[in-house]
């Protein structure tokens, strides 16, 4: 992930509301201004409990302060597992998973996607599903033994169309 993490911790940043205004317009980002920084999300977050670098509240505050470059080029928005524990507990009903998805969408459009994610997306949009390469003969036999059909019948035309229209084609919105 060399393209990401271009943060410069030592420069002073001037706060601006333009980034959060941008997020507000993305699907899922509408509630960004509802956050009152109470910290309930971070207290509930499993990722935050296993690694020091990820603090959802901090990330939201950075968005509210307008630190666009830093947030979009960072790996942090990709560390949200979307488990939604924070959402259940947020007193303002903010959906962090959705806000971070909005951030990721913008980041993706500007070319900042973690390698692991890019790989999966490429596979899905090509094959129509994730595990075509993983469907070995052994597994086919196991399925047969269990009485399950072996031709999984995934459609790969639709995804190619979608990729052209919404992912490659500069992405609307």
């Amino acid at each position: 992930m060399s393209k990401l993490d271009k943060t410069n911790e030592h420069e002073e940043h001037t706060p601006s509301s333009s980034f959060s205004r941008e997020i507000e317009k993305e699907p899922g980002g509408a509630d960004i201004q509802h956050c009152i920084q109470c910290g309930m999300c971070t207290a509930s977050c499993m990722v935050a409990s296993v690694t020091e670098k990820y603090r959802p509240r901090k990330l939201i505050q950075k968005i509210l302060l307008g630190m666009r470059e830093e947030v979009l080029t960072s790996e942090l928005p990709w560390l949200c597992m979307t488990c939604r524990q924070c959402e259940e507990r947020c007193q303002e009903d903010v959906s962090l998973a959705e806000i971070f998805h909005a951030v990721r969408n913008i980041a993706a459009r500007e070319g900042y996607i973690p390698v692991g994610v890019q790989k999966v997306v490429d596979t899905v949009m090509e094959d129509g599903w994730m595990l075509k390469d993983g469907y070995s003969d052994f597994i086919e036999d196991d399925r047969d033994d269990l009485g399950l059909h072996t031709d999984l019948g995934w459609n790969n035309e639709f995804v190619k169309k979608i990729k052209k229209r919404f992912i490659d084609g500069g992405n609307k919105k």
Binding site: E26, P27, G28, W78, T82, H101, A102, R104, N105, A108, I113, V117, V120, V121, V124, M125, G128, W129, M130, G153, W154, N155, N156, F158, V159, I162, K163, R165, F166, I167, N171, K172, K173
Partner: peptide
């Protein structure tokens, strides 16, 4: 039959419309 991946998590992160 003839289904596709739902796009959860990975495609979702890259394009909401897709």
């Amino acid at each position: 039959k003839d289904a596709n991946c739902c796009g959860a998590q990975y495609v979702e992160s890259v394009s909401h419309t897709a």
